[in-house]
């Protein structure tokens, strides 16, 4: 990636604040996704991960702060939950071509990659949860976006399937150079394919390369030692920045300089 591209992120949140019922769902969140970068948002339940992603997509109105999006950015979105309404008959093919018309060859290739080639012409209403998840992911990949936004892409998928899916996402990035923003629970599988991690709990607790974030005390407090060791196999203690009250002080590890090491072509 060129240095110029790195300066203009695909998308960024600047000082994003979102309140609901006088509670901060997003508390001055800064986040950027560089072009060609895979960024993962992790955090406990109710941390505001989906809301953050929806804010990035313009689906949630911010109370303060702004979303900066590169002009002309093609976006593909896999929501965390969706239900197909049985009142509307739809084939899988129809779901795949919802907002975009990919070539027949691409459709076949992506479905084969996701191991759902046999589902192309069946009714989407008959799919199992895992099958529907793969179809919705295929749909997002087939849009060939500049920014791929995935909210829990491996829910309803078993561990082996999850690993496959992260490899497929990484291949899509390598092939098209798209930026990827994803929310995930599968700490150990996702980290292998992630450039940068944001740990969210209303505010950004810490961020940086997966192995660095695993060493942050804020991260350990949120996820526990085991999870931290998953991220940082060579875990060693070192000093942290914390506020005088002991609360995790925003201590951003923006290891932006490392992105140049990735080969995105």
């Amino acid at each position: 990636m060129s240095a110029a591209a790195d300066k203009t992120p695909a998308v960024a949140l600047v000082g994003a604040v979102l309140q609901r019922n006088d509670r901060y769902v997003l508390d001055h969140v800064d986040l950027r996704v560089g072009r060609g970068e895979i960024v993962t948002v992790i955090g406990p339940n109710g941390a505001g991960k989906s809301t953050l992603i929806r804010a990035v997509l313009g689906l949630e109105k911010l109370d303060a702060g702004e979303v900066r999006r590169a002009p002309g950015l093609t976006v593909a979105y896999l929501p965390q939950s969706y239900q197909l309404d049985p009142a509307l008959p739809l084939s899988v093919r129809r779901v795949l071509t919802l907002t975009h018309t990919p070539s027949e060859a691409r459709i076949k290739a992506v479905l084969e990659e996701l191991d759902i080639g046999q589902l192309l012409d069946v009714s989407a209403l008959r799919l199992s949860g895992g099958e529907l998840q793969r179809v919705m992911l295929a749909r997002a990949l087939l849009r060939e976006p500049d920014l791929l936004v995935l909210d829990e892409p491996t829910q309803n998928v078993d561990a082996a399937g999850a690993l496959d899916i992260y490899q497929i996402i990484a291949r899509q990035r390598a092939r098209t150079g798209c930026a990827v923003l994803l929310v995930s629970h599968d700490l150990h599988v996702v980290m292998a394919a992630t450039d940068r991690v944001y740990c969210l709990n209303g505010h950004i607790c810490c961020s940086g390369k997966p192995e660095d974030v695993g060493r942050e005390r804020a991260f350990v407090e949120l996820f526990g030692e085991t999870a931290a060791k998953t991220l940082a196999p060579y875990h060693h203690h070192h000093d942290h920045v914390h506020g005088p009250d002991g609360a995790p002080h925003p201590h951003h590890h923006h290891h932006d300089h490392t992105h140049g090491h990735h080969n995105h072509t």
Binding site: R54, L57, A76, Y77, P79, Y82, L84, D85
Partner: peptide
């Protein structure tokens, strides 16, 4: 309209 009916979120997020 079909896209909007299947998923309003996807349609809006993707600017469709």
């Amino acid at each position: 309209l079909i896209a909007l009916t299947v998923s309003e979120d996807i349609s809006r997020a993707e600017g469709f």
